[in-house]
């Protein structure tokens, strides 16, 4: 439902981001003789938006006001009860808390590491192609495969991370210990997202004119200050775009990673909100409750995005 809607949202943002420079040159106005023709051109796009966004959204909102019979025989209107149940439940609050922490950590680390690698890779002259390919390659791995690889890295018997922890006398139990699992989840999610951020930061860095960098070399002796005051602000548009994409990623696209890690494990494992939506709806057959949760999630994302565009974008300088 809302996770079906999410790819559309990020696709829209990518499009907005890509079309950014085009704003400078005003498009040539086109006159249509037939009134129907423009609608015809718009139809495929409108159809896609309607089928994959509005229709599921309306469905989700509608069913969030009903309790559905587990066997699909009928539905009873219950008003806001589903919302009250979700928001009032201690379990929901705990998962929401973890989701917030998870999102902050995954977004922060993926952005930070992506930027760090990009800055370092940008300085490599010899063998730069091989180096960059190696860094980008991880992005080609499908999320469930990444989850599986993560599971192997944290395997109770052969996982190198578990062995490493054992070396320090710590008994790591991913899938059983709540925070061990959380650690593995965050690590694999970050690992999966870093290359994506790397590509964008690297191309952003390469978009900074060489002479501006050289001017800053003459104006500022300290490399870190130089980066912070002259280079980073020019990366702000890229960083802002990536921030939105990464939050979305952490909230929704980590689903596959989490699924692989917790699916057949004992109960006390960290979940994110989107996984709980899936769990309650498709495992627990509580369609109404699950729909209410996904509507709440939709509102959260909407608010977050609005805040970002209102408060952050003002401070972003577009070249």
């Amino acid at each position: 439902m809302s996770d079906a809607a999410q790819p559309m949202k990020s696709a829209g943002m990518i499009r907005r981001w890509l079309s950014r420079p085009a704003r400078a040159a005003p498009a040539k106005p086109v006159q249509f003789d037939q009134p129907l023709l423009p609608w015809l051109f718009l139809a495929p796009q409108l159809a896609v938006i309607f089928v994959f966004f509005y229709w599921p959204s309306v469905q989700a909102i509608t069913s969030s006001f009903y309790i559905e019979d587990p066997f699909g025989f009928g539905a009873t209107f219950v008003g806001l009860d589903n919302y009250k149940d979700a928001l009032g439940s201690a379990e929901y609050q705990r998962i929401a808390g973890f989701t917030a922490l998870f999102t902050v950590l995954v977004t922060g680390f993926s952005l930070g590491l992506g930027l760090l690698f990009a800055v370092k890779a940008d300085k490599v002259i010899r063998g730069r192609t091989a180096y960059r390919t190696a860094l980008i390659a991880v992005y080609a791995i499908a999320p469930p495969v990444a989850g599986l690889m993560g599971m192997m890295l944290f395997d109770q018997h052969i996982g190198p991370f578990v062995q490493l922890a054992a070396w320090f006398g710590y008994d790591m139990k991913v899938g059983i210990n709540y925070w061990d699992t959380a650690f593995a989840m965050i690590l694999v999610s970050v690992w999966k997202q870093v290359p994506y951020n790397f590509i964008f930061f690297l191309s952003g860095l390469q978009g900074i004119p060489a002479s501006v960098r050289e001017a800053s070399v003459i104006d500022c002796r300290n490399g870190f200050t130089r980066f912070r005051t002259a280079i980073l602000p020019l990366l702000a548009p890229t960083a802002f775009f990536l921030l939105i994409i990464n939050i979305t990623y952490a909230l929704f696209d980590t689903f596959a990673v989490i699924d692989v890690m917790v699916k057949d494990k004992p109960a006390n494992n960290p979940l994110t909100l989107v996984y709980k939506v899936y769990n309650d709806g498709f495992r627990g057959n509580d369609i109404g409750g699950s729909a209410a949760q996904s509507v709440i999630l939709m509102v959260i994302v909407l608010v977050l995005t609005l805040i970002q565009f209102r408060w952050l974008e003002r401070r972003v300088h577009y070249g």
């Binding site: 004119p209 002479s211 501006v212 050289e214 001017a215 800053s216 003459i218 002259a230 602000p233 020019l234 702000a236 300088h317 070249g319």
Partner: peptide, 12 residues
């Protein structure tokens, strides 16, 4: 101090 061909001003 250097003056560059494309000015090299800090756009931000």
């Amino acid at each position: 101090a250097m003056v560059f061909q494309n000015y090299a001003l800090y756009p931000h």
